[in-house]
Design a protein around this nucleic acid. Structure first.
Lengths: 233, 233
DNA sequence: TCTTCGGAGATGTGATCACAGATCACTAGC
DNA sequence: GCTAGTGATCTGTGATCACATCTCCGAAGA
């Protein structure tokens, strides 16, 4: 029993099921825009691609369907939902409300170290967007990192989960557009709104943080909608 | 082809899988508080209880787990999560923020027929709560109906889905308490807040609606927390 | 040339089997 | 008398099979 103390130091090893791995793989495909709205997904094909049986893929897909990130058509075909412009607008409005609220809470209660983390994330994105040869995929990731650094400091775990799901849902549309028009992200809009949001968080000004972040989302949404890539019905 | 017109009137019949049915059955068990925090769930036992194989149950459970309504312990046991008082408070705060926002939107944009539906729901709950022999389970359902009548009029489908998930998550705790202390729901608190919310919606006063609804949630939460039925850690 | 029909292949759903690991009661050993 | 080990049983996970149904492509018909 003299080993009790040293045993306590053992890191409890995480148990990842194949379904977990499959979920992450598919979610990444969706978030990165490599799976675009309307695309069909086959359980068997996905399974052989991942080198497993259909079971883990099935479970992963059922989770994604529950999240509304995938859908099973009445014909039982699995596909990425095609959003109407109206759907996308409603999703964006929800995001503005929910994420704006999270940003406001962060502004009002952030600690010094949380603020530092947000500052670093903002600087990282700014660096990439302003570089000579910006990498689109990398900029998307840094943009996400910045947003979630802000949300992580809101102090409400359930709120973070909600936002993560909203991003997953909006991901395919946003990244599809971004692939077609990578220049947009790198222009001034996002940079300006990010700076405003950061300033508001520094000043502990909740409403201003919410407004700046909502403006960021609104502008990105309007830009995508102006492209007319979405069905109108 | 002369039948094209009449054929279009056929209601497209919904295709429900066994997994869907199992999901609803389990969700109902959770929402009604018959499955309480800490309870374990066996796939095989649930399957024989539902008269199906484990497959549909498995899919249903995986969805519930994705929603955070069930959890798989590191030991792979499936159970209803036990929330700490802190967790429950964070969930309640999230609900106050999100549901308050939905109520505010409803107040500002509700149509006349939506208002009428909300009025009916409020009256139904008031009738049950004020009756000579109130039925607890029925009151719970009517309370839910009233809340969702309000949220349904907010005009944002994604927001409604979010709220539905939040209720599913809070359900086991709330209903567990309600089973132990059915008198609380029937006292003045909820009735007063409902009346305030309804009045604000009638007056198209968004902030007031949000405040009244948040107060409703806050008081119910404080009541449950004061019971000390939740772990503290 | 365009439409309609038919059959081969692929699809999701569900059932069943196999297996590693957890649980629990019980016994042997200090 | 209490702990540690042992084995039967049950657990979730994954693979495989079975089946009804949808999809797709080519041929026969108008």
């Amino acid at each position: 029993m003299s080993s009790r103390l040293v045993l306590a130091e053992l890191p409890q090893l995480e148990r990842r099921t194949l379904a977990d791995t499959a979920y992450e793989a598919l979610a990444d495909l969706l978030a990165s825009g490599r799976l675009t709205p309307g695309d069909r997904l086959s359980l068997r094909q996905s399974a052989v691609a991942l080198g497993v049986s259909v079971m883990p893929v099935r479970e992963a897909v059922s989770r994604l369907v529950a999240d509304g990130v995938l859908e099973v058509a009445p014909t039982r075909a699995i596909r990425v939902p095609v959003m109407t412009a109206q759907d996308f607008r409603a999703l964006a409005e929800t995001r503005m409300a929910v994420e704006g609220m999270a940003a406001a809470r962060t502004a009002e209660r952030r600690s010094a170290v949380e603020l530092a983390a947000i500052r670093r994330a903002e600087a990282a994105f700014r660096g990439e967007a302003g570089s000579a040869e910006p990498d689109g995929a990398r900029a998307v990731r840094l943009n996400r990192d910045l947003h979630f650094a802000i949300y992580a400091a809101c102090g409400l775990a359930p709120l973070q989960e909600i936002i993560a799901r909203l991003w997953l849902k909006a991901g395919p549309v946003i990244n599809l557009d971004l692939r077609a028009h990578p220049e947009r992200l790198l222009q001034g809009y996002a940079l300006r709104r990010h700076a405003e949001t950061l300033a508001a968080i520094e000043a502990r000004d909740g409403p201003a943080a919410a407004a700046a972040l909502a403006a960021d989302i609104r502008e990105a949404t309007d830009f995508i909608l102006s492209r007319g890539g979405l069905r109108d019905a």
